[in-house]
Structures are given as C-alpha cells and as structure tokens.
Design a protein around this nucleic acid. Structure first.
Length: 733
DNA sequence: TATTTAACTTAGTACCCTAATT
DNA sequence: AATTAGGGTACTAAGTTAAATA
C-alpha cells in the first residue's frame, strides 16, 4: 500500500501520535500560505482553493459537472434569474466531493484536515417564563416560582402523562435536583417546598398541552412561516467549510436542558441536565479562521485547532460527565470515508476469518483457562454476534455484552443448548436459546462451576485483551468488526440465495426485507411493538376473511352452473375460518358498510344539487336505496348454508374460475403480509441498514435485479452512501 | 499493567411529515 | 378535505476502542 498525499488521507499513527492534545498554532505555520485566504472564504467557496491546492481529487469533475460548476463559478453576485423557479429552495446543488475516486480513499489512516471554518454551535433560545396565570401548586396552593425553578418544574410537568412520572427513581432524582435549584431560587411567595407528593405540576402540563394544540391548529402557511424563521436563525450553523468544501454539520444544536432520560434501570434517570453555556463549550476550528461569536451571551471555554480530530465543538454533560460532540453529518466526506473504511475492514476479515475460526475452535479445548475462555468469547462474538461487553460502573444501567456476561445470564439445557437471558445495550433484552458447539456447552458448564449467579462467566477475558489478540491476526481487527462482517456476509448470502430472479419487483423487495430481517435478528435489533399493531392485524385479518368469503360465493355460483365443479378438489374444499357464524358476521358488516356508503353518497349528491341551485332529493330516495341494500342482505341470508349462490350479473364459468384464481392470489399475498407484519413487529430493520450492511450490496443487488435503489434507500441514506452508489451489478461483499 | 478519558459508532424512540385512506 | 398509519428524521443515550494517565 503506497502512501499517498491526498489531503484527507494521512498515513496515521506516526504523524498523529502525541498530537491529541491541543495543537499550538505555530506548529501549523508551514501550511499557512495555503490557508491564509479562507478567512474570507465564506464567499470564495471552492474557487480560490481549487487553484491553490489544485490537481488532486478534482480531476474527474469537469466532465460530468460541467454545467453545475459553471454556475457556481460566477460565485459572488447572484444571477438574477437563478433560484427563482428552476429549483425548490431546498435543493442544495452542492457539487459533491468525489473523495472515493481517490486511489486510496479510505485508507486506514486518521483523516487530517487542512482548514476548518464554521460559526460555532447554536445555543437554544433562553427560557421563556410561563404566563403568570400558569402556576404549579404545592399543597393545593399556587406557587410563585422564579423562572430558574419554574423551568425545571416545567421539564417535569411536561412528562406527567408519560411513564417517567410513574418511575420512583426518576421522581427521586428529579426532586433532589429541583430542590437544589430551589435552594438558590426559592419561591417568591415564601412557600417551603419539602415533599414531592404535595407538588402538583398539572397546571403546567395542561398549559403545555394547550400550547401544543395551538401550534397544531396553525394554518399550513403560518407553520411554514415559523419554520422558515427558525431555519434562517440556524442556517449559519448548518454547514461548515472543511478544506474549503461546504459540508453539512450533523448536530449543530446544543442539547437543550431537560431531565436525563436514561434507558432501562439507569440510576440517574430524572436528573437535571443543565443548560449548556458558551463557557462550557470548546470549539475546534482552523488555526487562521475568524473565531465565531456564540449566539447567546458569553465566551467559549476554549478555542482549539486540532486537525487530528473531526469534531467542531464539544462539552461535558453534567449528569454523567459524558463528552458531547458536534460532528459533521453522515453524508460528509469525513464520515463517508470512515464508513467506507469500516466496511473495507470487515471485508478484509474474509481473508483471516477461516484461520481465526480454526484457531478458536481449537482453543475451545485449551488447557489454559484464559485461552479457553477467550476462545469461547470469540465463538459468542462470531456466531451470536454479541458485542464486546465492556465493564460498566455502579452509576450506570446494569447491562452486559460478551465479556461482561454473568453466570445468571446463561443457563444450560443439555445436551447442547444454551439459554441466554440478559440485558444488552440500551437495556434491550437478549433472550435466545441457541444450539451451540458441544465444546462450547462443556466450557460453559466448567466456567460456571463454583461460582455464584453474580460472578463473571468469563472472568479471565477482558475486552482490551481480546481485541489485542484479534489485532494480532489483522491490523485493526476488533470485536465489533465481527458484527459488521457477519451482518454484511449474511445479507449478501441471503440475497444471493433467495432473490427470485423472475419475480416481480414486490417479490424481490420481499426477499430483500427477509434478508434484512435475518440480519436484524442476528444483531438483536429490536423496537417496541407499534401502538397500532394489534389494530392493524385485525384489520388485515378482516380483509383476508372478506376475500375468502368472496371466494366462497364464487365457488357456490360455479356449483350452480355445473355439478362437475363439486368434484374438483380445488373448489370442493371449504375456505378455512369461514363458517356459518363468520358468514353472518361478514354479511352484516357488509350491509352496514353499504348503508353508510349510501347515506354519504346521498348527502353528497344533495350538497351538489343545492350548490347548483336545485332542490335536493327527497328522503324517500335514500330510504329506497337502503331498502334495496336490505333486500340484498336478506337474499344473501337465504343463500346461507345452501352451498349455492347467484350473482347480480351473470358471468360465464370460465370468468368465474379466473376470478377465483385472482382471489387466491390476493388471499395469499394478504396472508403473507400478515405473517410478515407479525414476524417483524418487534424487529427494527433500520439499524442494520444504517450501520451494518455494506450499502454496496444493496446497490449492486438493485442493479442486478432492476429494482430502483430509491425503494430501499431513503433520501438521507442516499446522501450517506454516495460512495456506494457506483458499485457495479456484480459487486460482492 | 490497570484505569480513565476522549473520540467516535451504534441504538431506540419521540415526533414530524407524507402518502394512503376515508 | 380530513384523518390516520407508517415511514423518515432528529435527538441523544449508550456502546466500543485507542490513547492517555496513574
């Protein structure tokens, strides 16, 4: 692998080591001449730098982007016609940086930027006190709170109808932190707030709800107006210039204050997450750029110039002392390159995985306990796609991964089934019974010997050691690469095997989703069952029964036409679940619906007549129509159980046969849809699509099977994966 | 070497928007 | 035209990992 000098790709380590801390300006003096100008770069855009840094990366552009570039070219002034109607205002028309055209676009190096210009971060607007008539109550009496205390009370008030308000830990933490605020900002009327149980936040809650409703009731135009105003305020922060290219910033808004919503049994949930001020925020910017002003009063904690990192700003959040960063958006070159190298690394694992597997299978029998445990861990990571599983602290939710499994999390079901039950990342339950290699089963029995439930199952394995071991096989190999590798590999294989070559687009999409789901199951990607799931299931079920009913009727018509059909097995058999009772139910429902429809139609017709200055139809017209429907209903009632039926309009037997075939098809797809829906109700497909499946697999598949990629990648996903869109139809993971 | 910290990826959910449905 | 379901996005918590520190 040759070292190349592309600006974004530097050879790593040697050059970056030791520079993690703050980089002093003078160190960068050597490249000063290159970047002096961009101080005024807001206007200059790519132009100036193109000349200066020239050549690299841009070579392929003129051809394709000719027209676009020209437009950008006359930069400075706006061409009067420009944006008028040609484009929707949101169409960005940036010429994308084709970094993946470079010879070694992802390399394995740290990306090191040359210039970085941005406007800092966007602080949320300051707190606006509630109107004076909205007051929480204490012991039944309204309390006059200073705004600092009111704000925090409001955070809680907004959550009244959520499960958080029922959570003892959440309440305790909130109340503790709120009391702390109250100490500094006590009620203005002298109320002594002592007990949580005496607090009534409902007036606040109701006010918020009313405000929400008001906002919702605004006309579309007003909403648009508001959004536009907000966008304008935020616009300066939405993009930055990285090496003179405009790039989207991911999360340029500073997280607003609120109550910490930890997942699962997080001991700190409900704690007050304080408002972040400029004094808390460090910004990272090119050494020669104009230093931006915060949009709220105050000065930055620090301004640094560290081109070995990719963040624009950071601060430490007060609840868990977690570091928060402002990064570029997923579609940026920096993120794109890193994403691509992630998948390239996973592909590289293909060259080593056989060896690695052979080794750990061997080591499953090692005499050394540490080796045997490590091998077992690797088995779990490789086969079950478990996460590495770092140790966690007392002040965090009790969740585990591979290396942090405890004895209580695995039970043995002879001869060789392991039953896993533990909470993983985000406190998502991993609950599976898995048939494992007999040696793994034996090992587990051994590892559990003489230990209590709370003891570590793999007490001799630690993530860092494990990763060091993996790194010995392949540079950069760590536990998490296996998840990426196995996910993408599984996906590719499933698609290759299961895609119906001559199927319809829908059938192909089904195969795709099936493969996607298989990966999601492997990685245990879950979601809460949608609220409406049950409802939509019954609705789908009703639809199937309706179809079956129609089929039955058609069959009966056939019997009336020719007795031979009764002999035909295809038609002789009754539809499942359509018994006498069901028929009654269906017909009653049909009757009801028909009447409703008739009434609506009647009303509409009259409206029209009135509008045309004619006189509306008499009610008896409606009555007549309703009676007709009832007559039909009675006719059907008489048919019940006779095994015969007639149609309103006669049709030849062969047409009916065709219709039945069509119904069969519809019944089948509807049933499949139900099965599909039920199977997927708690499986999240998105996570694997975004993080684990090499997008080139999807792109190649789309090309090969002639499916538009837009059916599978949303707009943002398309923006995230520009580098993958050029994969050929025969590309393989 | 063990522990801590910094930086980055991965994750589910709340909420918004859009398209299907009524 | 209004409602609703479900897809998409924003948000930020919770992981992993390498490097810094003790």
């Amino acid at each position: 692998m040759h070292e190349d000098d592309k600006p974004l790709v530097s050879p790593k380590k040697s050059s970056t080591r030791g520079k993690r801390k703050v980089k002093v300006e003078s160190e960068d003096d050597d490249d000063a001449p290159l970047v002096k100008k961009p101080v005024a770069a807001t206007k200059a855009r790519g132009k100036a730098t193109k000349k200066d840094e020239g050549s690299d990366a841009e070579v392929s552009k003129p051809k394709k982007k000719g027209s676009k570039t020209k437009k950008e070219g006359d930069s400075g002034e706006e061409t009067p016609k420009k944006g008028k109607k040609a484009k929707k205002e949101d169409e960005e028309d940036e010429d994308i940086h084709r970094w993946w055209d470079n010879e070694n676009p992802a390399g394995d190096g740290t990306q090191k930027w040359q210039t970085l210009q941005h406007n800092g971060v966007y602080f949320p607007p300051p707190y606006e006190p509630l109107p004076s008539h909205v007051k929480m109550k204490y012991d039944g009496k309204p309390v006059n709170l200073p705004e600092e205390a009111e704000e925090v009370a409001g955070f809680y008030g907004a959550l009244l109808e959520t499960p958080h308000a029922e959570d003892a830990v959440f309440n305790k933490n909130f109340f503790r932190d709120w009391l702390e605020v109250l100490k500094r900002y006590p009620p203005l009327d002298g109320t002594k707030i002592k007990e949580f149980a005496l607090c009534d936040f409902r007036p606040m809650f109701e006010y918020f709800e009313a405000e929400k409703a008001k906002k919702k009731a605004l006309s579309a135009a007003e909403k648009k107006e508001l959004k536009k105003a907000k966008d304008e305020l935020e616009a300066p922060y939405a993009h930055c210039f990285l090496d003179a290219r405009k790039e989207k910033v991911g999360n340029f808004r500073i997280e607003p204050p609120g109550l910490f919503r930890g997942r699962g049994e997080h001991p700190k949930k409900g704690s007050l997450k304080k408002r972040v001020r400029p004094e808390d925020v460090t910004i990272n910017i090119g050494p020669h750029e104009v230093i931006p002003e915060p949009n709220v009063p105050g000065t930055w904690k620090q301004v640094i110039h560290d081109n070995t990192v990719t963040w624009l700003a950071n601060w430490v959040e007060n609840v868990n002392q977690n570091h928060k960063y402002v990064f570029l958006a997923a579609g940026s070159s920096l993120k794109g390159q890193s994403d691509m190298s992630k998948f390239e690394k996973a592909r590289e694992l293909k060259n080593y995985v056989d060896r690695i597997r052979a080794d750990y299978r061997e080591d499953l029998k090692s005499k050394q306990m540490a080796d045997r445990q490590r091998a077992t861990a690797m088995y779990l990571i490789d086969v079950l796609a478990l996460r590495a599983g770092n140790e966690k602290g007392e002040d965090e939710a009790d969740t585990v991964g591979c290396c942090s499994l405890r004895c209580e999390h695995v039970t043995l079901q002879p001869p060789n089934i392991l039953s896993f039950d533990f909470l993983g990342k985000d406190s998502i339950r991993y609950f599976k019974q898995v048939e494992v290699d007999p040696q793994v089963f034996k090992n587990m029995r051994i590892f559990k010997q003489n230990k209590t439930d709370e003891d570590a199952l793999l007490d001799r394995v630690h993530t860092s050691k494990l990763n060091a071991h993996l790194n010995g096989y392949m540079k950069g190999l760590t536990a998490k690469v296996f998840r990426t590798f196995n996910a993408s590999q599984t996906f590719q294989i499933q698609l290759d095997e299961k895609t119906p070559h001559n199927g319809t687009v829908q059938e192909k999409l089904n195969a795709y989703n099936e493969a996607n789901r298989m990966v999601a199951v492997l990685c245990n990607h879950q979601r809460t069952v949608p609220k409406t799931h049950e409802q939509s299931m019954t609705r789908m079920g009703d639809k199937v029964r309706q179809l079956k009913y129609e089929r039955m009727k058609l069959r009966h018509v056939l019997f009336g036409i020719d007795r031979k059909y009764k002999k035909n097995k295809k038609y002789a058999e009754d539809e499942s679940d359509i018994d006498e009772e069901a028929v009654v139910e269906i017909e009653e429902k049909m009757n009801e619906k028909e009447k409703e429809k008739a009434e609506k139609k009647f009303a509409k017709e009259n409206e029209r007549l009135v509008a045309d200055d004619k006189k509306p139809q008499d009610d008896c017209v409606l009555q007549e129509r309703l009676e007709e429907i009832d007559t039909e209903f009675e006719r059907l009632a008489k048919e019940r159980g006779t095994g015969k039926a007639s149609l309103k309009r006669e049709r030849p037997a062969e047409k009916i046969e065709e219709a039945i075939d069509k119904l069969d098809e519809r019944i089948n797809t509807a049933k499949l849809q139900m099965v599909d829906r039920e199977a997927g109700k708690e499986i999240a497909l998105g996570t694997s699509k975004i993080n684990y499946l090499d997008p080139r697999i999807t792109v190649a598949w789309c090309k090969k099977f002639d499916v538009p990629v837009e059916k599978l990648f949303s707009k943002t996903l398309l923006q995230k994966f520009p580098w993958a869109l050029e994969a050929g139809s025969d590309w393989k993971f």
